[in-house]
Design a protein around this nucleic acid. Structure first.
Length: 478
RNA sequence: UCCCUAGUAGCUCAGUUGGUUAGAGCGGCGGACUGUUAAUCCGUAGGUCGUAGGUUCAAGUCCUACCUGGGGAGCCA
C-alpha cells in the first residue's frame, strides 16, 4: 500500500477510506480504551491524530510507541470530534524505529533554543525547526524564481580561489600540503608551488568578481552559493559558512540597483506570506509567547504584521551625508546617548546609528547610499564629487545590514588608481581589469546574506538557528 | 578579538552573610482515571554542583586560570 503524506491527508475529504501513513511520534496520550498518537512526517507543521483502540493491539507494540519513534499506520480516515478536522482510526501499526524515552532528548516539553542548538542533528524534528527549514526551502525556490522571471542567469562561481584581493574578510586556506612538514623555500617560507594548485588557495569570500566577468557577457546574472569567512565574529548575525546571493547587472546604475534590491526583498517576503502561512503562524505564536516575558516597550511587531509592512511599504532612500545630518541633529545624539558620537562626514556608521535610523527615526527599511570612498571597497564607483562612492546598504530592523552593494567602477584608470591606493595587487587582478579594458560598461550588483533574510522572515533572534548546522568560531559539530 | 553575564538532575531553574544527609517544576518510569489535545491525579528513580588549582576547621557558595553557552561591540552579508 502506498504511503500518503500528512499534508495531503489533513486536507482530504475521503472519510471512510483506508490509507497508510508513516511518521514520527510527537506525543501519545493513553486512555483506558484508546491511545491518541500525534504523528508528524515533516510535510506540514500540523500533526495527524492516530486513534488506537487498545483492545486491537498487542500491549508490547503500544509500549514502543514513544515520543520520537518512527511508526507506520494503516487505518480508516475519519472525521474527528476534537480540535482537529480529521483523524486516523488505526487498524495496523508497525514500529519502524524505536526511540528509548529514557535517552531520547526531545521530550514533549519546552526546550530552549540554546539546548536544541547542541542537538542540531535532532532539532529538525521540532515544530520550530521544521517550520524554519520549510520556509528556508521556499525562500531558495523564490530566489531562483524571481531571477528566472526577470531573465537572469544563474552562475556557479568557484568555491576555491587563488585571489586574496577580494577584501571581504579573512579567508580559510585550502591545501593538500603536509601541515606538520610543509615544503619550504630557501628563505624558510612555505613553497606553495608544490601545493595542489601550485599556488596558495582559499575558500571564496564572495563570487562578485567572477560574477562581474559573467555579467559582461550575459548582461544579468546571479550567484547563490556557499561563502566562507574566517572572521572571529561571535554574534547572532555572523556565520563562518553561509549562503549568499549576488546578482550582477550590466547597464545598471546605482538607482537601478536599488530598485532591484527593493523589489527582490519584497518579492521574497511576499512569497513567504503567500506560501508559508501555516509555518509563519506557528512561529508568530511562538514569538508572542516569548514576548510575554518582556516589558511592553521592548516588544517587537508581530511577525506576520511586520512582514506585510515591509512587503507593502517603500523603503527609505537617503545618502550617507543626509543620514549623518539626521543623526547629528537627533535628540538622541544631542543628549549624548550614542556611545559613539556622530561627528560629521567621514565617521563610519556604527550599529547603534543604523538601528536608530531604521528602528527609531524612520521605522522602515532604509537604503543608504553615497558613503565616503575611504571606508568602502576599491571596486565601488567614485561619484562626481570625488569623495563618495555609489555604494548602497539595505538596513533592516533587528538584523542591520541585509544587503550590501554598489555600482562598480568601470573606468580603467580610476579603478587602477584606487587599487594602488588601497594596496590591491593590480597585476594579479589583470583578468578582472580586462573587463575594464575591453568593452567596459556601467554595471552594478549586490550581495544578500541568505541566512540574514531567513532570520528576518522567521523572526528568529540568532542566525545559528536558521541554518541546519552552523559553523562558527570554535564550533564545527556534525 | 574586547566588554558584560551564566555554567547545580535528561531539560528549566532555586540554593540565605561559607556550616550537617543538595531542592522544585517539567520530562522519564510505575500506578489510577479519562475521546484525549504538551491530558489530569498519586507515587518513584535520578546529581563527581563546567574543569584545574587555591583560601579555610569547613566551599555549590570566596579567589585565580582555563573551557563552554548567552547578550553586546568590532568585522561584515
Amino acid at each position: 500500500m502506498k504511503r500518503q503524506e500528512i499534508k495531503e491527508i489533513l486536507s482530504s475529504e475521503a472519510f471512510g477510506s483506508t490509507i497508510k501513513v508513516n511518521g514520527w511520534v510527537r506525543t501519545k496520550r493513553e486512555s483506558k480504551n484508546v491511545n491518541f498518537i500525534n504523528l508528524n512526517d515533516g510535510t506540514v507543521i500540523h500533526n495527524l491524530q492516530i486513534v488506537a483502540d487498545v483492545n486491537n493491539f498487542d500491549e508490547n507494540i503500544l509500549k514502543k510507541i514513544n515520543t520520537g519513534a518512527a511508526i507506520s499506520v494503516v487505518g480508516e480516515l475519519a472525521e474527528s470530534g476534537g480540535q482537529q478536522r480529521v483523524e486516523l482510526i488505526a487498524k495496523e501499526i508497525e514500529v519502524i524505529g524505536e526511540a528509548d524515552p529514557d535517552k531520547y532528548p526531545l521530550q514533549p516539553k519546552r526546550h530552549t533554543l540554546e539546548f536544541l542548538r547542541e542537538i542540531a542533528h535532532l532539532r529538525m524534528r521540532t515544530n520550530t525547526f521544521s517550520a524554519i527549514f520549510r520556509i528556508r526551502h521556499a525562500m531558495i525556490y523564490a530566489v531562483h524564481t524571481f531571477f528566472n522571471n526577470k531573465g537572469f542567469f544563474n552562475m556557479h562561481t568557484p568555491i576555491i580561489t587563488a585571489s586574496d584581493a577580494e577584501g571581504a574578510g579573512e579567508m580559510f586556506q585550502v591545501t593538500t600540503l603536509d601541515m606538520s612538514n610543509p615544503p619550504r623555500n630557501e628563505d624558510g617560507s612555505i613553497d606553495y608551488s608544490q601545493d595542489f594548485f601550485g599556488k596558495k588557495t582559499n575558500l571564496t569570500v564572495s563570487g562578485q568578481l567572477e560574477g562581474e566577468l559573467a555579467a559582461m557577457a550575459l548582461s544579468k546574472i546571479y550567484t547563490f552559493g556557499p561563502t566562507f569567512r574566517a572572521e572571529n565574529s561571535n554574534t547572532s548575525r555572523h556565520l563562518a559558512e553561509f549562503w549568499m546571493i549576488e546578482p550582477e547587472m550590466a547597464f545598471y546604475d546605482i538607482n537601478d540597483n536599488m530598485d532591484l534590491a527593493e523589489e527582490f526583498l519584497k518579492y521574497l517576503i511576499q512569497y513567504a506570506l503567500d506560501n508559508c502561512m501555516d509555518d509563519l503562524e506557528f512561529l508568530s505564536q511562538r514569538l508572542q509567547q516569548e514576548e510575554k516575558d518582556k516589558p511592553a516597550d521592548q516588544r517587537s511587531m508581530e511577525l506576520i504584521e511586520k512582514l506585510r509592512f515591509v512587503a507593502n511599504n517603500d523603503f527609505i532612500r537617503l545618502t550617507y551625508t543626509e543620514a549623518i545630518e539626521i543623526l547629528e541633529n537627533s535628540k538622541h545624539n544631542q543628549k549624548g546617548k550614542f556611545q559613539y558620537p556622530v561627528k560629521g562626514f567621514g565617521t563610519d556608521l556604527q550599529s547603534e546609528h543604523e538601528r536608530y535610523l531604521v528602528e527609531s527615526h524612520f521605522k522602515k527599511p532604509v537604503i543608504l547610499t553615497g558613503y565616503p570612498a575611504s571606508i568602502k571597497a576599491f571596486y565601488m564607483k567614485l561619484n562626481p564629487d570625488g569623495r563618495t562612492v555609489a555604494a548602497m546598504d539595505v538596513l533592516f530592523p533587528q538584523i542591520g545590514e541585509i544587503i550590501g552593494g554598489s555600482q562598480r567602477e568601470e573606468n580603467y584608470e580610476v579603478l587602477v588608481e584606487k587599487m594602488e591606493k588601497m594596496g590591491v595587487p593590480v597585476e594579479e587582478m589583470s583578468w578582472y581589469l580586462d573587463t575594464r579594458r575591453f568593452g567596459s560598461v556601467p554595471h552594478s550588483g549586490f550581495g544578500l546574506g541568505f541566512e540574514r533574510l531567513i532570520t528576518f522572515v522567521t523572526g528568529m533572534g540568532n542566525i545559528r538557528d536558521v541554518i541546519a548546522f552552523a559553523r562558527t568560531p570554535k564550533n564545527c559539530e556534525f
